[in-house]
């Protein structure tokens, strides 16, 4: 398989995951803000912050309100991580890897792009936002389902799996960070306990993990347990432990991967050493920040091993 094609296929998976997660994230915020007491100061701008996109945002918008944030996250072609930008990148990459990606994927991605571009106003306004976000999540899952059902498990497949799991792990750190940040903002409030449950409940829902969390832990929603679950549970497909495992497993199936596999195994052994589950405030945020750095170094190692030299 061409190095360049490997790189493109990897990015298809990353952007696809990003589209779905961004839609989920906006959806969860929508819900969360309905439930929080009005006295809590908790703004839409957090969404921009957890995606580390403050600079991009402030370059183009003055007011940090719902409309601008949602527009920035979903429909802003100048934001490289927005849903429309990610879809555009998927399209470009599918278009240039048509020899390895199933033909139907090209049609599905076209359909999804057309849907999003035609209905973007629905997403920005509030009344039909849910329907719009649902369609995006469904559209992404449809494409993933197609790949699962029709792609041979050859090199291209393992590059897709690498991209998907790295992006997923990254998004899980960001969602946890959103929870930690929200919590920090309301520490002095009377209703903290209740709000804490709301926040962590929503973090779980944002990755679709609320049901499995309850079944696995058989406990109420508590910060400590939620963070542990989303970091270390080996079974749920969006946890850090699970994603790292999938990354190592995929890397093993690819040629010339020994160095990368060793690196991943070492990471798996000690990545949870520094977390303190009793302190979910600033220390958690710092830990998550380090985790994001580790993920970035995995990407660099993948690129170094297989992608064309820049």
């Amino acid at each position: 398989m061409l190095s360049k094609v490997a790189e493109r296929v990897y990015w298809i998976a990353r952007y696809l995951e990003r589209v779905e997660n961004t839609a989920r994230l906006v959806g969860v915020y929508d819900n969360l803000l309905f439930d929080l007491p009005r006295t809590v100061e908790f703004g839409w701008f957090n969404l921009v912050q957890i995606n580390s996109a403050q600079e991009d945002f402030l370059e183009r918008y003055k007011v940090k309100d719902e409309r601008n944030v949602v527009k920035f996250m979903l429909g802003d072609a100048n934001n490289p991580s927005s849903v429309v930008s990610s879809l555009k990148m998927i399209r470009e990459n599918v278009r240039t890897t048509m020899d390895v990606v199933p033909g139907e994927a090209w049609e599905l991605i076209n359909e999804l792009s057309i849907y999003v571009n035609d209905n973007i106003q629905q997403g920005i306004g509030r009344s039909q936002r849910n329907v719009f976000l649902d369609e995006i999540v469904k559209g992404s899952q449809q494409i993933n389902g197609l790949l699962y059902g029709t792609m041979p498990h050859d090199a291209a497949w393992y590059f897709i799996r690498l991209g998907r799991n790295l992006e997923r792990a990254d998004m899980t750190t960001r969602l946890l960070d959103a929870g930690a940040a929200a919590l920090l903002q309301m520490e002095r409030d009377e209703s903290t306990v209740n709000v804490e449950q709301l926040i962590w409940g929503n973090v779980l829902r944002s990755v679709g993990a609320d049901q499995s969390y309850r079944r696995t832990t058989r406990s109420a929603v508590e910060g400590e347990d939620v963070v542990y679950y989303l970091l270390e549970d080996a079974q749920f497909p969006r946890t850090i432990a699970h994603c790292l495992n999938a990354l190592a497993d995929s890397a093993k199936k690819l040629p010339r991967s020994k160095e990368l596999v060793d690196f991943l195994i070492k990471l798996q052994e000690n990545i949870f050493d520094d977390i303190d589950y009793n302190n979910l405030g600033e220390p958690l945020r710092e830990y998550l920040n380090d985790l994001q750095q580790d993920l970035a170094s995995i990407h660099s190692a993948i690129a170094r091993t297989w992608f064309p030299e820049v």
């Binding site: 094609v5 020899d99 033909g103």
Partner: peptide, 13 residues
């Protein structure tokens, strides 16, 4: 390329 199962390459590949 897709229909023939051939690789689609550019000069740089």
């Amino acid at each position: 390329a897709q229909q023939m199962g051939a690789e689609l390459v550019e000069g740089s590949d």
